[in-house]
Design a protein around this nucleic acid. Structure first.
Lengths: 191, 191, 191, 191
DNA sequence: TATGAATGAGGGTTCATTCAT
DNA sequence: CATGAATGAACCCTCATTCAT
């Protein structure tokens, strides 16, 4: 009955879906909840999304794109590779702190049969960013010589670990600064 | 078809449940599948487990206990803290490599309403091991002075990141050796 | 197959439920039967009723309300208390004769954990009617002096007995007239 | 394992069944409960009873026989018909007071497809007793002339009403004395 | 574009009954 | 006689999806 632009409706649904999926997870969330939360009829959902999976995937893609944009932007104009790496970590951790539910949601459906490809693409992109930083660090001589893609992979894994740590431990006390310090300096005493 | 020792039946169910849950995840797995996979009737499942959740939780607990035992044992008699840490990482990564599905399954249900307490206890224990190693390293003077529990938390997160990395990337190339090297030495060139 | 007014669907379900519950009793009736009998899908039932119990209770409540209305109305404008009592009995017995299955159904679930409160309220109301009649009879001097609420209770029990008698004995021959005569005059010869 | 005489086991099962059926009703009681309550294995139940229905029916029959014996005995040697009638009522009400659950249980399954025949036979016998009393009362001239079988039916219904009243109302205050007074004298003031 | 009643397959769970021991 | 693990049909209920309006 409401005259709403299609785009606006789609946005509303996505927002509602975010709230609902975050709270209940993919499996326990149901279309009626999302319909109610977005104030759109059950049938209406299917005007904008092929099915539940499509809705979920679209949502995830948009969030990932947002985040990818953020990181890209914030890192691109930092000259010092160590600073850039620190910035990359910082933005990851801050985002995690702010959007625990999203991380949780993504993690929860980690190995899902669907959406894997999308996730992999996202990961690759992020790793690409790290690789660039490492290469710059090596060129400028402040990083040790390492196998770039492999190290990027490891670092990316570490960051994912940090992120999960923040999300999982309710009273996580570790700060971006500390995390990057450990990553950059290691545990051993510099002789 | 009757008469199997109760314990044997329980074991069969647990094994089958592991396979089924691994493949489909908790939500999409259904009791009928597990029944079929364990060659036990649907009703039979409920002779040994109160319900689906109980079955899942029991399964997880047994796996965690197994793993906790393994790490404890393998680390306990290594004198050098750096070696101990490396061993701890190695065992984590090797286990992950061998039991990807289990990790995935656990990760998938990360934020589950149930079983959280159990998982937290497990995490705490593992973190305790790391703390011990750090303390020894600091005493023997080969580790830098750090805030022990916090650092343990960070390291544990990092390891979790490694583990997930192995699981998520299908062609993970990173080795335990590399991982522990990075963790111990950091990315920056010494001096 | 779609689109029926909600109210109409609800009515159809209630009607079908009456038939099914009457024939099989609460425990042996199942939702699929009711669905089939109302020509509505299983899921459709749950659009209108929270669950089996709710459906049953709603059904009972509506029947009780109907009946309470009938008695109230038919007794209210009879001046002579003896006549009023006779009318009350008559309406009870006639209703029982016409709706054996309903009585049976209600009786069958007599001590049910649920719906007891509802039934008690209904009983209380009916007893209230009887009390009024007794009081009037005593005031006008044609009834003996009795303890009103207690006597009402007894009379109500007697009527319930009559009702059950009609329902249980397939070839019940006893008529309202006879019943009220016995109740009013007793068995002893008036000396 | 226990050496128990068959008869004793049967009795134990019946006793346990009484307790369990009373508490849960026929439908919600299950064989395992009865097995546990009688300390006999599930399979063992089927050594003594063909199935759940048979167990229930056997139980009911034994209770009815007991009760029929009691009434018969207690009424048989009372000379005065009014006293006999009063005694009959008294024994019914006292039994009801003592064995509410049994009455409830029987009432609950009133219209059951099975056991109806048995119940009818029981009712007939009880009615026969009442008929005898009425006939004696008419012969001795203290009862009014009435249609004997029909009046017996009505009286039996009334008594059933009393019995149910006792069971249903939690704080039933009506006494056997009162009940029989009303039944014998009626509500109207004499003359 | 929008609605929401309706569908129906499928999931978790129970329980009377059987049968190898 | 006795056991109790095992069976499997059947039950209540949910929910993604459709479609007449």
């Amino acid at each position: 009955m409401n005259k709403r632009s299609g785009i606006k409706s789609k946005k509303r649904i996505l927002d509602a879906a975010m709230r609902v999926f975050s709270e209940y997870g993919y499996a326990k969330a149901n279309m009626r909840m999302i319909a109610k939360a977005s104030d759109i009829s059950t049938g209406g959902l299917y005007l904008y999304f092929k099915n539940k999976e499509d809705l979920y995937l679209t949502l995830m893609k948009s969030k990932m794109d947002d985040f990818a944009g953020m990181t890209m932007e914030s890192v691109s104009d930092i000259a010092d590779p160590a600073d850039a790496m620190a910035a990359f970590i910082t933005i990851n951790l801050n985002y995690a702190k702010k959007h625990k539910e999203l991380i949780l949601l993504q993690g929860r459906e980690l190995g899902f049969t669907f959406g894997l490809e999308m996730k992999r693409k996202f990961f690759k992109k992020q790793r690409g960013l790290i690789e660039d930083i490492i290469r710059q660090g090596m060129q400028s001589g402040i990083f040790r010589k390492v196998n770039v893609p492999e190290t990027a992979k490891v670092i990316f894994s570490i960051i994912r670990g940090f992120v999960l740590g923040i999300v999982v431990e309710p009273d996580a006390l570790f700060t971006p600064a500390e995390c990057s310090k450990l990553l950059l300096n290691g545990l051993l005493k510099k002789e």
